[in-house]
Nucleic acid binder design. Structure first.
Lengths: 312, 312
DNA sequence: ATAAATTTATAAAAACTATCGATAAAACTT
DNA sequence: AAGTTTTATCGATAGTTTTTATAAATTTAT
């Protein structure tokens, strides 16, 4: 049994197809097929059922694949251990970022980071919290940036900053006359929300839920804050924005912003990574960079953190 | 990087010597040396310092060895997973047993087990609780039989039976006139103890400690109960025996036995194994066999369990 | 301090194996 | 039923592991 064989098995399990798996593994299909067969012979068990297409994984195969993932990930770590021992900051590093943080935070730190650590090949993926967690678990991501607390057993959360919610209240809205917003005054039924899957949506729902029994009526939903702001201008209601999105609005729109009373509700944005601490040295370097650039742009201390997780 | 290379590294780390490591790995010394070198080249780090003899492990090497242990153990598990999936009970299985249990328990179940599961190559090692725990951790043992509770994070304890302590009180002893023993009446200073390292010794000390402040005076100490009984007969004090040892005494000596008041103090004997549950199917088979033979010989319910761990 | 013994490294040859390209066989699609 | 897609098989080749033989280095004994 070799690590290569296990990697081939994982590739087949992932792509459910020998030919594609071979391509992704940068070998020819016979090479991969034979190695998988060899492993099956050695273990004397079928891992894949090739009698139908697409191929399926046998019961024994599922367990073998799970264990193989383990082994391959642990094997990868040896290289990381050596790098860490040498103090070398380099190699591939994959970071997942939730969509509502990506456009505002990424431009703030990306340039600084790649300048400071040119040997790191940073791969950035935009994905929602759920897939972020899944990818952290199976090792497809080295770290993620998401709203916390998530309270997940195998994940370490290191808060980066606290980002208050800001109201965008068009002139026609009933709350326009108020000086400051309060969570109690909000009515979930006239707040424009992001579409499902965004944790910022959950945050807003949780914020309003504190004083209302929210029944899931139909709401206009969009994937971008820009759309929400435009819809709000059309008189379809108000919306809530994260602070960093709010400060980026043009002057005309900024006049529609309404801040919350102290302490404002806020989301906690954290760097999250697997407790196994793969590539911890790079993760720490990344955290340092982000923390230092954020320190200038955002400095809220006394906030009320709103959970990003659905409370159902 | 291959699993074989990691195994070679582990062998060198274990034996601190390339030649011996090669023998134990059933390859020639150059084979092993070259593979270790190849891995060092690939990782671009020295794992072993060969400039002095015996060779030593570098700082980076220590971490690599720890991780390699992980990987190799996890790799071994794949075979176990397949066996388990097939319901196959076979292969090598290594069991550690503490010295004070070995001579009485092993004859009771060994024959039954090897008859029932002839494909299992059972390797039995006598060792004290400390090395048992260490060997379970690094995978040198598949399971152990020891006095519990040990309360160790990575170990599962499955109680097999409860074995009361029985007093061996020679005619000349002050407690001879008592009908039943009570823990309060015991005086640690005239009890003959097993030598250090036996957990039964710790159990006796804990039993007496409940009512006495034990200061570590000099005591006669022996490694076998037979010696203790003979010393007791010479008038050097009394001693305590586990129930199964007591019932094996000849008739003449049995007349010196004195039982405890209900509920008698007892030790809990458990099958212990790593939480990772390597070869769980064999472990369960073993537990079944032992539990069934023990059920006939020993059936105490209402006992007071004495900790086998030093309370200092 | 020098010789002997032990231990690790190096080199060349042999055995073995992973990989590839070509092609056959099987399964699915139209 | 023909064509397409996917997996298996085959022979050739390049590369790797292993071995035997031997050299170099280190430790131990005299």
């Amino acid at each position: 049994m070799t690590i290569t064989q296990l990697q081939y098995v994982l590739a087949v399990a992932e792509y459910q197809n020998f030919t594609v798996a071979a391509e992704k593994s940068f070998v020819t299909q016979p090479t991969l097929s034979m190695q998988v067969q060899k492993l099956e012979d050695e273990l004397d068990v079928r891992i894949f059922d090739r009698s139908k297409k697409p191929i399926s994984i046998t019961e024994a195969g599922k367990k073998i694949v799970a264990q193989a993932k383990n082994i391959v990930n642990e094997a990868k770590r040896i290289k990381d251990i050596v790098d860490q021992e040498k103090g070398y900051i380099g190699g591939e590093y994959t970071l997942g970022i939730i969509p509502t943080v990506m456009p505002t935070l990424l431009p703030m730190f990306l340039k600084t980071f790649i300048n400071k650590y040119p040997k790191v090949n940073l791969v950035i993926r935009e994905q929602n919290t759920d897939s972020l967690i899944r990818n952290l678990q199976d090792g497809h991501l080295d770290a993620g940036i998401a709203a916390t607390p998530l309270d997940i057993e195998f994940i370490t959360e290191r808060p980066l900053y606290y980002e208050p919610f800001v109201g965008y209240v068009p002139p026609s809205h009933r709350l326009r006359k108020e000086d400051k917003l309060s969570p109690e005054a909000l009515d979930i039924r006239d707040i424009l929300l992001l579409e499902d899957g965004h944790c910022f949506r959950e945050g807003v729902v949780n914020l309003c839920k504190a004083n209302q029994n929210f029944e899931d009526h139909f709401h206009l939903q969009s994937g971008s804050f820009e759309t929400l702001v435009n819809l709000a201008n059309e008189g379809l209601g108000m919306t809530l924005l994260p602070y960093l999105n709010a400060v980026e609005l043009d002057e005309r729109k900024k006049s529609n912003l309404k801040y919350f009373q102290e302490p404002p509700p806020a989301r906690e944005i954290s760097l999250i990574y697997h407790k196994k601490e793969l590539k911890l040295h790079i993760t720490n370097a990344l955290r340092e960079v982000i923390a230092s650039v954020v320190r200038g742009a955002i400095k809220f201390q006394d906030v009320k953190i709103i959970s990003p997780v659905s409370q159902n």
